[in-house]
Amino acid sequence: LQMREPEDSMLGDEVYAVGYPLAADMTVQAVNSFSTSDATVTTGSIGRLLTESGTGRRLIQTDTAMSGGNSGGPLVDGNGAVLGINTAVSNLDQNLFYAVSIGEILPMLDRNNIPYSLYSASPMSGNTMLYAGIAAVAVVVVIILIAVLARKKKKPAEAAPAARAEERAAGGAPVIRSLSPQHGGLVVQLHHQQPVQIGRDNATCRLVYQDGTPGVSSRHCQVYFDEREGVFVVTDLNSTYGTFLAGGQRIPPETPTKLPPKSSFYLGEVDNTVYVDLE
């Protein structure tokens, strides 16, 4: 199955939960084999996209029925693309169900070198072709306008870095997200190129690991976001066990290392992975 990150434009769209709920097999003797054709499918729609308070997990709220057995299965759209992983039902309202957004899953797949493919739209037809034609005309008009304006006045070269900074700002705020089970998806936002320290010392670190966490020093490393270059800068603070890139390469102590958004690194052991991105 292909992966597709949910977007606000999908609110109200029909989705399907696929799995093997135990109740379906216990109620009647319906299953005599276990294959893809035996899966149970329930349908509903996306109610909203939200970020869970306290953990920072991105969730999909839906009225698509889930039960024991199809939790952990995929929540797919009408094209069969996976939007999330079926996870929970509300204790307050039995018609509210939640799936973890696939955007939370992709970094884990990357970290563990698990291959996947992203959803891409099928070849255009019908109204899609019409809209594409209108868009193409609009692009041509814009190109002509740009050419005309360029003849009148050239933009100064020094304006480019500021423009790039604005584009990066539009992409979201820089954050670090712990993928360690002890943090439950905790997110820490970075501000004004101020370094955030990570380690076990709760007096100096903003991302704090529990005492005794294997591989993590008291003041292990720090990270900040370079707004001009649009990269995260990670520095190991002479930690005992080292700071490593996702591929296993150790970062030299006291040596700033640049990482693009949607990257990860870990403190001593892979369980202590930190994900950096613009959200």
Rank of each mutant, 00 (worst) to 15 (best):
F244I: 04
L145I: 11
P123M: 11
D13E: 12
S71C: 03
I144S: 09
E227G: 00
Q189I: 05
G199R: 03
N32Y: 15
V76T: 12
R250H: 03
V188M: 06
G19Y: 09
V187P: 04
E279R: 07
A138V: 11
I176W: 08
S117T: 15
L245M: 00
L96Y: 05
T257K: 07
P260S: 12
G126F: 04
P261D: 00
A150K: 13
R4C: 03
S180G: 10
D38M: 13
L106D: 08
E279M: 03
Y98P: 06
D93T: 06
I105T: 01
A160T: 15
Q222F: 06
G242S: 03
G44K: 10
T62R: 07
V234I: 10
G78Q: 11
Q222S: 14
A88V: 02
A147I: 14
L22R: 02
R168M: 05
T43V: 13
V100Q: 05
I105R: 06
L186V: 09
I144G: 10
H192F: 15
I85M: 11
G84H: 07
Q182R: 07
K258Q: 02
H183M: 05
F265I: 07
M10E: 00
T273A: 10
S71M: 05
G212P: 07
G47D: 11
H220M: 01
Q197L: 09
T27M: 15
Q193R: 11
F244G: 04
L149T: 13
T51H: 03
N202M: 11
N127I: 12
P214G: 00
S263M: 01
P253E: 08
